[in-house]
C-alpha cells in the first residue's frame, strides 16, 4: 500500500513539473509567449533602402491615437523596395510579418499593419503614410 502511495506521488510531481510552464505562459501559433499585457502600440519606426540605410529625411511621426505613422523619405528614394522596421511595446507582435522588401509606390493607398497585444486580445491597425522630400 505504501509503495502505491509513493509511486502516485512521484507521478504527480513529474506531471506537475512538466505542465507548470504551459499553465502560466501559453504559446501562440508563432511560438511566442502569450502574456497578460494589453498594451498595443508602435514605439518606433524605421524605413530602410536596399542598401540597408535609412531613407527617412526626419524622424517618423507616430500617432498612437489615430494609429498612423507619417514618414517623409529622401528625394530619389525607390519606393518599390523598402524594408519597414517596427518597434513595438513589450510582448506585442505584428501582423502580417515582414519577410521581404515592401512596395510603397502606391502613395494613394497606404500600407497597413496590425499590432497585436501581448495577451493577443487587442488588435490595432496602423497606417504607414509615406511622403517624398521635395527639392527646396
Amino acid at each position: 500500500m505504501k509503495n502505491y502511495i509513493k509511486i502516485s506521488l512521484a507521478l504527480a510531481i513529474i506531471v506537475l513539473s512538466t505542465s507548470n510552464c504551459s499553465w502560466e505562459y501559453p504559446i501562440d501559433k508563432d511560438g511566442l509567449l502569450i502574456t497578460e499585457r494589453a498594451e498595443c502600440y508602435v514605439s518606433n519606426f524605421e524605413l530602410l533602402d536596399t542598401d540597408h540605410r535609412t531613407v527617412r529625411s526626419r524622424s517618423a511621426i507616430i500617432d498612437t491615437i489615430e494609429q498612423t505613422i507619417d514618414v517623409e523619405v529622401l528625394w530619389g528614394t525607390n519606393l518599390k523596395s523598402l524594408w519597414p522596421q517596427f518597434s513595438l511595446v513589450t510582448d506585442a507582435k505584428l501582423d502580417p510579418k515582414i519577410t521581404d522588401y515592401v512596395n510603397f509606390s502606391d502613395l494613394e493607398n497606404p500600407k497597413q499593419w496590425t499590432v497585436v497585444s501581448g495577451n493577443r486580445q487587442v488588435r490595432k491597425d496602423y497606417t504607414v503614410i509615406i511622403s517624398v522630400q521635395q527639392i527646396p
Binding site: 529622401l74 528625394w75 530619389g76 522630400q133 527639392i135 527646396p136
Partner: peptide, 18 residues
C-alpha cells in the same frame, strides 16, 4: 544639391532629367 542627398550617383540614361 542643397537640401537633398545626391553627390556621387550612377544614373541610367533613360532616367528622368531630374
Amino acid at each position: 544639391i542643397p537640401g537633398i542627398s545626391f553627390e556621387h550617383a550612377f544614373v541610367s540614361p533613360a532616367a528622368p532629367q531630374d
